[in-house]
């Protein structure tokens, strides 16, 4: 190996190290902070000094945080199920049946996925108060479909469009109705796409903040992001950084594990949303 080549590969690996450190360090530091208490909290520590679970006990032993986690799990799961159910049948129609206005319909759905959430906030607020859903998890499930539904329909449609015609033709010859075709023929083939879109919709619903902040008003109906954003200490000036970091770690670790397990599927789903031409 020549010196020049060696230099190049050292530079390359230096770049790789920078990328990795830059990506991981903030979360690593949150974990370090979440185990620090007392005065240790107020001096920058690059490495953990002690493992003190006090912050985790404070957060999980608190009156509302466990409740907030349950709320988030319920809202995100229900949102995913509702959107997947509505999207599977709709994307079958969009991908496999030729009818007039199909292209226009697809573009409309894509346009909805680009809606700024704030533009529908006033109207949704009125709708939710009218339906009597204000300050309930159902307000969030209803409003979250605005960003999960177009996305799931779009990805499932692109996925279903690529399935071979022959499978469906065989079923039609056998006299299967469209409903049978969806449930018996397509659904088993769709599982990978359903897992991907479901997971992405779950993450979207789990992380959502604007609607959750606006449509809930009491501590016990808040979702996790709102709870963390509004977590306050004994006094106005004193921000409880230890418990905030512990809460952050608690809600992020499951997400990171999920993302790492389903890495390839998520990347495929993200790119199918836009780039796959």
């Amino acid at each position: 190996m020549t010196a020049n080549k060696m230099l190049k590969s050292i530079a390359f690996y230096a770049l790789v190290v920078v990328i990795v450190v830059f990506s991981i360090f903030p979360f690593y530091y949150a974990i370090v902070t979440s185990f620090a208490t007392g005065t240790a909290l107020f001096e920058p520590n690059y490495f953990p000094k002690a493992f003190d679970w006090a912050n985790y006990k404070t957060v999980l032993g608190g009156a509302t945080f466990p409740r907030n986690i349950v709320n988030s799990v319920f809202v995100a799961t229900a949102t995913v199920l509702v959107s997947l159910f509505l999207a599977v049948t709709a994307s079958y129609a969009l991908a496999r049946v030729r009818f007039r206005g199909r292209g226009l319909l697809l573009m409309t759905i894509l346009a909805v996925s680009m809606f700024p959430q704030i533009a529908v906030l006033a109207g949704l607020f009125e709708l939710i108060t009218f339906l009597g859903l204000f300050n309930s998890p159902f307000a969030l499930i209803l409003s979250y479909t605005i960003f999960t539904l177009p996305f799931t329909v779009w990805v499932l449609t692109t996925f279903m469009r690529d399935l071979p015609v022959e499978i469906e033709e065989a079923a039609i010859v056998d006299g299967a109705t469209p409903w049978i075709i969806i449930t018996k023929v397509f659904l088993p083939l769709l599982w990978p796409a359903l897992v991907t879109t479901g997971l992405l919709a779950f993450i979207g619903a789990w992380n959502e903040f604007l609607f959750a902040l606006t449509f809930t008003s009491s501590e016990s109906t808040r979702t996790v992001p709102v709870a963390i954003a509004l977590l306050s200490g004994a006094s106005q000036q004193e921000i409880p950084w230890g418990p905030i970091m512990a809460a952050s770690v608690i809600v992020t670790v499951p997400l990171i594990i999920l993302v790492l397990i389903f890495q390839r599927k998520i990347v495929a789903g993200l790119t199918a949303g836009g780039v796959k031409g």
């Binding site: 990328i19 903030p26 993450i203 992380n207 992001p225 963390i228 992020t252 997400l255």
Partner: peptide, 11 residues
Amino acid sequence: ILIPWAIPTIV
């Protein structure tokens, strides 16, 4: 690099 993406914005 997926880690920053997976972390909720609020967090």
